[in-house]
């Protein structure tokens, strides 16, 4: 039987890829983990958006209130489409810059990768800014009591904002690592994982944009 050998943390973790025989593909640990986390994120938003749609459907198909057809948004509540469209368009643009970053890393173009990742971060910040502006225009007051529409609107879009912030952090970490030379044509796993989360964030925003902003 083997005997216990104490080794340092960092050293032991570095053993994982080196253990493989030459020619054996490196296990895509980060990509697999990112995919699993992405699945959980999808389920989370499916639950939130599903609840939003079910409650909205229940309200607008419900009985008349004081002889008038039921409405989802109360008086004073509105969702101007322009900030939502701008945010959506910016998010789609950020996907192009993200893919540019992945491609640059593939070709060991560190300068291009840094520029593309910086643009992606900038676009992400712009989306947060646009959504914050939308909040000031929408007329939903969360504190002091609100209706179901306001509550669920903030739950869905606020959670998505939190996702954007998390995805941005992931991208920033990968930017730093790329600058440090950790990612290149020899190993693109980190940057591809960051792009996977970014595309997922965009896809969820597309659903939120249509289900919440467009169809209202």
């Amino acid at each position: 039987m083997s005997t216990a050998t104490a080794t340092h943390d960092e050293a032991a973790y570095d053993l994982v890829p080196e253990d493989l025989e030459p020619g054996v593909a490196r296990p895509r640990v980060l990509l697999v983990g990112t995919a699993l986390a992405g699945a959980a994120i999808i389920v989370f938003f499916a639950g939130l958006i599903g609840l939003y749609l079910r409650v909205r459907h229940g309200v607008i198909t419900g009985p008349a209130v004081d002889g008038e057809a039921p409405v989802w948004f109360a008086d004073g509540q509105t969702l101007p489409l322009t900030p939502g469209n701008v945010a959506m368009g910016t998010m789609l643009l950020s996907c192009i810059s993200m893919q540019w970053a992945v491609d640059s890393v593939k070709h060991d173009d560190r300068r291009g990768a840094f520029f593309a990742l910086a643009m992606t971060v900038l676009f992400g910040g712009a989306v947060i800014n646009a959504t914050s502006f939308l909040y000031t225009q929408s007329g939903f007051a969360l504190s002091g009591g609100t209706n179901d529409a306001g509550l669920l609107f903030y739950a869905v879009t606020g959670s998505h904002l939190a996702l954007i912030v998390g995805a941005l952090l992931f991208v920033v970490i990968m930017t730093v690592r790329t600058l440090g030379g950790e990612h290149g044509s020899h190993d693109r796993e980190g940057i591809v994982a960051a792009s996977l989360i970014w595309y997922l964030t965009t896809a969820i925003m597309l659903v939120v944009w249509y289900a919440v902003y467009v169809t209202k």
């Binding site: 994120i41 989370f44 938003f45 499916a46 009591g145 609100t146 509550l151 669920l152």
Partner: peptide, 19 residues
């Protein structure tokens, strides 16, 4: 479990803001 998390997010916002 993320569905439970989603329910808790709504529940938190709901209860905290008296919706």
């Amino acid at each position: 479990l993320p569905v439970m998390l989603a329910v808790l997010v709504v529940l938190f916002l709901d209860h905290r803001n008296g919706a």
